[in-house]
């Protein structure tokens, strides 16, 4: 589904991603871990198409398409979803209005008719139930005055509504309380099918107890320096990053 080859990207001449290789297939869950500032959010932003970042080399293909040629909204229409580490406030726009606009635009791009409001509301209710979201939430303004955890839950709610092919969850777990973590992880699992895939960016093994990854990658200084199965996350939890980062630093010095 997603193939990233030798991806190099940065900002204002400052290279952040220094040659990323990653392949994600339908049905898989990949976890990306790594120290602060290693480039995890940058990688997700580049996949989503944030123009601020300059791609200096390499390729990204998604379902056979050259992703780098598409605008961010076109990537979204093609099924890429990013749950932001820091969701943005849009004052004055209700959650329901925002999601409705989002779904309408996506359907328009796909040549589908606007979803009747009745169906949309029904779908919203179902997904709210799935994520134990309280009533009244739909008429609040997008992320305005939301607590950290509420913002994260709002991201997953949008994911549930948009049903993406590839979802990238950038530290969705941070800020969630223990119950919310379980609810959100549960939601993510329920939305899993053989046709979609998830990339989970996290600092904590705990999330991976709920969302069990097929692969774990360690990102350090703009490169994936180690990949393994779910047990790699346990090892990292125990030993920290030092033991692999030191080795990598020597290699790339």
């Amino acid at each position: 589904m997603l193939q990233i080859k030798e991806l190099k990207a940065g900002i204002e001449g400052n290279q952040i991603l220094k040659g990323i290789n990653l392949e994600v297939n339908a049905g898989e869950i990949h976890a990306i871990m790594g120290p602060n500032g290693s480039g995890k959010s940058t990688l997700s932003a580049v996949i989503a198409g944030k123009e601020e970042y300059e791609v200096e080399g390499g390729t990204i293909s998604f379902d056979g398409k050259n992703l780098l040629e598409l605008d961010p909204e076109e990537r979204a229409h093609n099924g890429i979803f990013l749950s932001f580490q820091y969701p943005v406030e849009i004052p004055g726009i209700s959650v329901s209005n925002f999601i409705k606009t989002s779904i309408t635009e996506k359907r328009k791009a796909q040549g589908l008719q606007t979803l009747p409001t009745k169906d949309l509301l029904k779908m919203m209710r179902e997904k709210m139930e799935l994520l134990s979201i309280k009533k009244g939430y739909l008429s609040r303004n997008m992320n305005e005055g939301f607590s950290g955890g509420e913002k994260k839950r709002n991201e997953i709610f949008q994911m549930a509504m948009l049903e993406p092919k590839l979802a990238i969850l950038d530290e969705t777990d941070s800020g969630l309380d223990i119950d919310a973590l379980r609810i959100v992880a549960n939601g993510v699992n329920k939305l899993r099918t053989g046709d979609n895939a998830t990339i989970v960016i996290t600092h904590y093994q705990r999330l991976l107890d709920y969302i069990v990854p097929d692969f774990v990658h360690v990102l350090h200084n703009g490169r994936i320096i180690k990949s393994g199965g779910k047990e790699l996350a346990l090892e990292l939890e125990e030993k920290g990053y030092d033991w692999i980062t030191k080795e990598a630093d020597k290699k790339w010095a």
Binding site: A48, G49, K50, E51, D71, P72, E73, R75, A76, H77, F81, L82, F84, P87, V88, E89, I90, P91, G92, I93, F98, T101, S102, I103, E105, K106, A109, N141, M142, Q158, L162
Partner: peptide, 26 residues
């Protein structure tokens, strides 16, 4: 950041600006 957030949700830049402005004027 606001525009990119909307873009990521499939809302093009013009529509995103309209949305943000409408919110601002609500």
């Amino acid at each position: 950041d606001q525009i990119f957030y909307c873009n990521q949700r499939g809302i093009g830049t013009e529509a995103a600006i309209a949305l943000i402005v409408n919110g601002y004027c609500k």
